[in-house]
Amino acid sequence: MTAIDDLYEVGTSTWLDDLSRERIATGNLGEVKKDKSIVGVTTNPAIFAAAMSSGTHYDDQLAELKLAGTTADTAVYAMSVKDVQDACDLFRDTYEETGGKDGRVSIEVDPRFAADEAQTIAQARELWQLVDRENLMIKIPATDESLPAVTAALAEGISVNVTLIFSVERYAQVVEAYKEGVRQAAANGNDVAAIHSVASFFVSRMDTEVDKRLEAIGTDEALALRGKAGIANARLAYALFQREFGPLDVDTLPAGANVQRPLWASTGVKNPAYPATMYVTELAGPDTVNTMPEKTIDAVLRDGGIHGDTLTGTETAARETFAALEAVGIDMDDVVAVLEREGVEKFVDAWQELLDSMTARLA
């Protein structure tokens, strides 16, 4: 038993926040799965940009795509789809053993479509068909324009990872989009038991933005609140999850439907002064997922520190933290607005850099 196994016993599934052709080809992904108790994989545009911009593992497929006259956009997704298919196959046994809850691999729609509902749902359908694996999840950002695409995808039986969530208010909209999606899926005759979804709440980026503002304020009261916003925010989201998917709300879902689990994303600490495992040990609880970079996974395995459920019953303290932040002058609405905008922009920039690089290589 490892600390990752202890985390699973508490109710938190650990997914690796990384994927590359090199990991698959060398057998590393299988080793990480076996030796570090990983039960899923997530990707994003920045991860694929890093993977495809180094090494030689994509060269053979790239040469074939070049001969076929493929565009950069098509080439990037062709290579991404191959990696995700292979990862899905590797985690198929986990998917079956957990009844579809884990063993999941996520692939994201083009971030440039974040403000375009029609383009988002069209690409979600296309990726679902291209990858053609039951344990796939399509990542769709939780923007105003893309939330209807979340509902539409779920209604068609597509499992969805709703990403780039930074506030409890936005999360409430995500929950409603999920519930409406599975209700429509049931009405459409789809098997709702086969549809799974997670809501990806970004944690460390919240602290990065809030800490910067606290340091600008500079008072003792402000400085004492550094490193507290991200965990408090996630704990408030978990309290909402418990209300929305608890026994009193069971009638809001069709019979056989699954709960939409909260997923803690961006859980590698950005500030080296903070414990490397703080976004893991302090966010452990039933029906959750934590997607971690391997560095964070290794820190958990090395340092341990899993001490049971640290989510249930924390709402009051989390609200007190938010009240203290507001009292020293932190405008949380503005923080969230900045994070939502920058979240999309960062993925768009990474994607565009990858497309530019791929265009040059195909030429």
Rank of each mutant, 00 (worst) to 15 (best):
A3H: 15
I4F: 05
I4W: 05
L7D: 00
L7F: 01
V10Y: 11
T12I: 03
S13A: 15
W15R: 05
A25Q: 13
T26C: 05
V32M: 15
K33M: 12
K33Y: 04
S37D: 09
V41H: 05
T42F: 05
N44F: 06
Q61I: 04
L65D: 00
K66L: 09
L67S: 14
A68H: 09
G69A: 10
T71N: 07
A72K: 04
A75W: 07
V76M: 13
S80G: 13
S80L: 09
K82N: 05
K82Q: 12
D86M: 14
C88N: 00
D89P: 00
L90Q: 07
R92I: 04
V109L: 01
D110R: 02
P111C: 14
R112Q: 14
R112Y: 10
D116I: 06
L127E: 02
L127N: 01
R133S: 03
R133A: 02
I138M: 08
I138C: 10
I138G: 04
I140F: 11
S146F: 05
S146H: 08
V150E: 06
L154C: 06
E156R: 02
E156A: 08
G157V: 02
V160M: 11
V162G: 03
S167W: 02
V168D: 06
V168Y: 03
V168K: 02
E169A: 10
R170Q: 12
Y178P: 01
V182F: 09
R183N: 03
Q184H: 12
A185S: 09
A186G: 11
N188D: 09
G189S: 14
V198S: 10
S204C: 10
T208L: 14
E215Q: 14
E221H: 11
L223W: 12
G230H: 13
A232Y: 12
A234E: 07
Y238M: 13
Y238G: 09
L240V: 12
P247A: 15
V250P: 00
D251I: 04
R261T: 01
R261M: 00
P262K: 10
L263N: 01
L263H: 01
S266M: 04
S266A: 09
T267S: 12
V269I: 15
K270N: 07
N271D: 14
P272F: 05
A273S: 08
A273N: 08
Y279M: 08
V280E: 03
V280F: 13
V280H: 01
V280S: 06
T281F: 08
P286C: 01
V289F: 06
E294I: 11
T296W: 07
I297T: 06
D298A: 05
R302L: 07
G304F: 04
G304K: 06
G305V: 04
G308F: 09
R319P: 00
R319N: 11
T321G: 03
T321C: 02
A324H: 06
L325C: 07
G329K: 08
M332W: 14
D333S: 15
V335T: 13
V335C: 10
A337K: 10
E340Q: 15
V344P: 03
V344Q: 14
K346E: 14
K346Q: 15
D349L: 11
W351G: 00
Q352H: 10
E353L: 10
S357I: 02
T359L: 00
R361L: 15
L362W: 12
